[in-house]
Nucleic acid binder design. Sequence first.
DNA 1: AGACTTTTGTGTGCGGCACGTAAAAAATAT
DNA 2: ATATTTTTTACGTGCCGCACACAAAAGTCT
Lengths: 406, 406
Amino acid sequence: MKTADPELMRAINRFHVMDVIRRYGPISRVEICERLQLSPTTVSAITGALIDDALIMPRQEGAVRDPARGRPRVMLELNPEAAFVVGVKLAPDQITVAVTNFRADILESLTLPIRIDRQPIPVIADLVEDGVRRCVADADLPMARIAGLCLGLPGLIVQSAGLCRQSPLFGERDVAFGPALSERLGIPVLLDTDVNLVTLAEHWFGHGRGLDDFMVVSIEHSLGLGIMHRGEIFRGASGLSPDLGDLLVQQHDAERAGIERLSAVASGAAIAAKLHDRLRRDGEGAPPSLRRLMARLRERVEGGDREAATVAAAAGEALGFAVANLVALFAPPRVILAGTVLEGGEALLRPLRETIPRLTPPGLGDIAEIVVQGWEETTWARGAAAMMLRELYGSPWGTTGPAERR
Amino acid sequence: MKTADPELMRAINRFHVMDVIRRYGPISRVEICERLQLSPTTVSAITGALIDDALIMPRQEGAVRDPARGRPRVMLELNPEAAFVVGVKLAPDQITVAVTNFRADILESLTLPIRIDRQPIPVIADLVEDGVRRCVADADLPMARIAGLCLGLPGLIVQSAGLCRQSPLFGERDVAFGPALSERLGIPVLLDTDVNLVTLAEHWFGHGRGLDDFMVVSIEHSLGLGIMHRGEIFRGASGLSPDLGDLLVQQHDAERAGIERLSAVASGAAIAAKLHDRLRRDGEGAPPSLRRLMARLRERVEGGDREAATVAAAAGEALGFAVANLVALFAPPRVILAGTVLEGGEALLRPLRETIPRLTPPGLGDIAEIVVQGWEETTWARGAAAMMLRELYGSPWGTTGPAERR
DNA sequence: AGACTTTTGTGTGCGGCACGTAAAAAATAT
DNA sequence: ATATTTTTTACGTGCCGCACACAAAAGTCT
């Protein structure tokens, strides 16, 4: 923790004001005073400075109040054009790019269904750079107006350094992908786990709104775990976010009992591998995308394919085991399940839903509520934007918080 | 997070100065300036106030410096008599009480080998009250000079409320033991998990010194898990500390495969239960204390008792599994193993030591260093003192940090 | 040896900045 | 015009940092 000086004090309060305007805006100065327990003087000074910086702007209309007497309130809101940011998500089979404004509204997005899995790093960087430049151009913005970029990908990431320690997408370890992109595009680049972006998005706009503690489990090609803990994204000691795939589970189906990494049982990649075998045996080709594959899984299970059902059930139970352990540790009031694999249907979901309460410790069982979040391509993009915007808001100590539903 | 005002600013800096003096004291004002990057003016003002409050005191001697020229430094150090606190630890078979001064030096301690397990709550409270009053009297202090008491016990504790949600020591749930004791003794009482006290003690004085991230696994009657995360004791969402015993493990010994709570395999209580059967069968009486029991376990294993060895090995492996999972989540640079059960010897320790690196994810394997801490009765007592002192230091946001070895 | 210089640590006015209180000004409804 | 509510302005307090003065010892010159 830093020592305090007037500058820090100002930064803290300025950030709070920004944050309240983002969450509850349009909002008047008096209301900000109430929410933050700051004096009108301070609020006026800070909002004045923010208006001068064009980060927020006043709006005359809409100042309704019950007894509409007295001087009308001047509502303040974020200036959507104060900054623009780019969010990028890398997955094994696609690159997605989105441009948002200062309110994390998506202005333009672009999906490239390209298999980047195991491509050389410079090639991936090329693809990302092209995608970003194209998307920014489509949004009718010059690169100079882009304040920053946030890129999410699966793996072990040291966010602070923009370093990818390890990822299923990269053949190499310890890739400084953040600095490399920053160099290419000439803008600040944040690197983070894809699931952390979704976690932040859920916090600002989704099921995590109003909650300072919740957990997101994403089940795509890789498994991801995002933890919101006391309003901050939880990162392990080295700044590494925890990797759900590295958790160990017990296999309790009889044939091969033993300890395995969760990613070997329940990830999209693992399920795909097991299903590919099955499909090939039956003379079917492998579907091109994870989404298609999951649709195929569901068809098969509904068609009575026992083997496919077993694969799905094993995955669901293993996930349940892991989630129950996580609940025991973090006691989150809500667990959000997300990811393409959930489209595999009830064959996977039912065992998962049943296992979690069964294995959760009795004292905590009533605490965690399980929510399944239909995956929207836009969710993560807003998350990436939010992650970058949080930097721009100038947070003195980290995360911000959820937006009010309006 | 609070909004900032000059008062908070002062509180932050004042706390920092206190903390630096505790960690590195005796220390001169200049050195404080260097460490905290505060101006001499500020440091002088703050130390002046602290001296006025008799929390710290100057000391002329010992102001050595390489080229011993110029005005000699006035060293500042904590005033050991600024406050006194009491630490209490409850275990199923004993109550331990210690009185410490403002530097967490133990002045007087007292161990009552009483089985409190399942006694009615008021009886336990009586015993604690008596023990505390006696120990304070032995330290030649009137109760009025005791600034507070911190009590550690196994179970699920909501520290902020002094509430014991659940404990192996109490027959009831949701016992407001903190307020009850506070009422009886007329002093502030903090309630916390016993392992959190040890964790804080390790941070201030032990193997966690200088580390902002580490984990403590305590293996006594119950299993305990203490996590130091970014210099703060990690608590789950509801303020509950995670309970290691609630973690799930796979039993991979053939006879009864399946999912079990770790506490059913590796806790002192579980081992004791299994061993009692064995001892009774052989016509031996059950040893009175956990420590004795563990000695017996070791004798047996060294004497070639296969069944005892199996019990120990199963416990070790299950613990290893759990710890490996925790390492995957928190990536702590160090894991401290502590607790009476470790005195059970290599039969338990070896499998534990072997399992952890085997199951730790490859990317993190080199990160976590495993340390076995010989259990000292004094450790937790200093922890309890530290926990209470931290409050007295007036921390604006939580924990402090390690002391410098001198 | 004694006075002077050098060196370093500590305390004191002063300005800057941020917050808060109180009162004035602004802007509308009655 | 009056009442009411919001916002701004004027002023006071507290804290930090700067520059400087003061304090105390070691070295140095006469």
